[in-house]
Every structure is written in structure tokens, then in C-alpha cells.
């Protein structure tokens, strides 16, 4: 049943004009970056800003809006002889698949075509696309959580924006303040540790470490690489990202299962 629901949701979402625009936007941007910049690392770094800002924001707003526009229908679905579990996961997959497809077409395809011709920075390129997909999934989970936690559409949107703002800017702002205040101490390890807690920082640093920009980051990069160099570090990074997907999803699921609609 989950699969059936997911297929129908995905069919509906895939016809959304906004998703089309999102795909088109990334396609145009990625292609033009590859056309205008001769340097693949310049392309990746320019894309990185988009991936870190646009992907989470769009995922968040898109999912929140979709779920609220379809709230009454979701309720109707729940009055049919299907379990809540199926409805939840049906919507989770039904939203995730189109969003991921949009990224794959808008960004993955141009990157893949470019990789066919130029192998330079292939790992970083792949990481860029995978990172964007992970962030999509993370913000999808957060959006579903927030959507069912707030009955009011505006409240849900506002809290979604707040979460986005916090992870995108505020967290790094606080990190900067910590670094400035603790400048008397060797704080690199601590800063690297803090960066593991924010998925945006983690994805960004994982990508930068694959690029020659890492040389500019001196001791900080060394600490990061040293940590990632061993199995524990890699596991921690992967776990951190998976937790960022799993935790909001789990919270949303728990809430959905016992919620009064």
C-alpha cells in the first residue's frame, strides 16, 4: 500500500509546475556554470553555494506547502481502509522521489555529462550531487515533521524558515562567535566537532576536503582530514548525516501515528 500511495503522490508532485521550475533552474545554472567557467573547481564551488542555500530552502518550502495544500486529502486518505503507517511512508517516498529526481536531472545529469569528458575532481563532483540529495532528504524530514506539528499553515512555514535560517546562517554565526571568543585556546578540534553537528557544515567540509581549496584551510583542514582519515571519523560523518535524516523523520512518524486529525 505504501508503494501505491507513494506512486500516486509522486505522480501528482511530478506534475507540479514548481518542481519543474526548480529542475529547470538547476539545469540552466549548472549548464551555464560549466559553459562560463573553464575551471571545474570554480563550477563546484559556485554550485556549492546553491546547494547549501537553495536546496534546503526549496525542499523545506515545497514540502510544507504541498502537505498543507493537501491536508484535507491526506485526512480523506486516512478515512480509507489503510494504515497510518502506509499513508506516512507513502507521502515520505512520494515527496522524496520527485525532489531527488529534480536534483538528478537538474544537477546530476549535467555533472555526469561533464564527468564523461573531464575526469578532474570526479569524487568532489559526485559528492556535490550526493550531498545535495542528502540535504534534500534531511529538509524533507524536517518539513514533514513541522507540517504535522503545526495545524496553522503560516506557523508551519514560519518555523520551517526559522529552522532553515538557523542551520544555514545562525549556527555558523554562533560557531564564529565561539571561535572569536575562544581565540586564546587551540579550538580547531572543537570547531571541527561542532561542524559535525550541522549537516550543512558537514556536507560543505566533506566536499572542500576533496578539493584543492582544502590547502587554504591549513590546520583546520588537517584536523578534519585526520579525523575523517580513520574509520571512526568516516563512520561518525556518515552517521551524523543519517541521523539528520532519521531523527526528524522518526519524530514526524511518531507524531503522525498518534495525531488527532
Amino acid at each position: 500500500m505504501t508503494g501505491k500511495i507513494a506512486r500516486w503522490v509522486a505522480r501528482d508532485v511530478l506534475r507540479s509546475i514548481w518542481l519543474g521550475l526548480y529542475t529547470f533552474f538547476f539545469l540552466i545554472i549548472t549548464l551555464s556554470f560549466f559553459t562560463f567557467f573553464d575551471d571545474p573547481s570554480r563550477v563546484l564551488l559556485s554550485l556549492l553555494n546553491l546547494v547549501l542555500m537553495v536546496v534546503p530552502l526549496v525542499s523545506m518550502i515545497f514540502v510544507l506547502t504541498y502537505l498543507h495544500n493537501n491536508r484535507n486529502f491526506i485526512v480523506l486518505t486516512l478515512t480509507q481502509p489503510v494504515s497510518r503507517r502506509s499513508v506516512f511512508w507513502g507521502y515520505w517516498w512520494g515527496l522524496a522521489i520527485p525532489l531527488q529526481l529534480a536534483l538528478l536531472v537538474g544537477m546530476g545529469l549535467p555533472v555526469a555529462f561533464h564527468l564523461l569528458a573531464h575526469r578532474a575532481l570526479w569524487l568532489a563532483s559526485v559528492l556535490q550531487v550526493v550531498g545535495a540529495m542528502l540535504l534534500t532528504q534531511i529538509f524533507l524530514g524536517l518539513a514533514i515533521w513541522l507540517s504535522f506539528a503545526h495545524e496553522d499553515r503560516l506557523k508551519a512555514l514560519a518555523s520551517g524558515l526559522l529552522v532553515w535560517l538557523s542551520l544555514t546562517f545562525l549556527y555558523d554565526g554562533l560557531l564564529l562567535v565561539v571561535i572569536l571568543l575562544a581565540s586564546a585556546y587551540p579550538i580547531e578540534k572543537f570547531a571541527v566537532g561542532l561542524s559535525f553537528l550541522n549537516p550543512l557544515d558537514l556536507v560543505r567540509l566533506l566536499l572542500l576536503m576533496q578539493m584543492d581549496v582544502a590547502a587554504l584551510m591549513g590546520f583546520t583542514a588537517e584536523v578534519f582530514k585526520k579525523f575523517l582519515g580513520n574509520a571512526v571519523g568516516t563512520l561518525a560523518a556518515v552517521t551524523a548525516l543519517l541521523i539528520w535524516i532519521a531523527f526528524p523523520t522518526w519524530m514526524a512518524f511518531r507524531n503522525f501515528m498518534k495525531k488527532d486529525f
Binding site: W8, D12, R15, N69, N72, F73, T79
Partner: peptide, 14 residues
């Protein structure tokens, strides 16, 4: 059970 809600709404793009 067949149910007809007060606010009938279905996915817009289908």
C-alpha cells in the same frame, strides 16, 4: 465506511 468530508479536496495536478 464511505466518507464525504465538508471540504472536498484532492491533489491538484491529477
Amino acid at each position: 465506511v464511505g466518507y464525504m468530508p465538508q471540504m472536498v479536496q484532492f491533489p491538484e495536478n491529477l
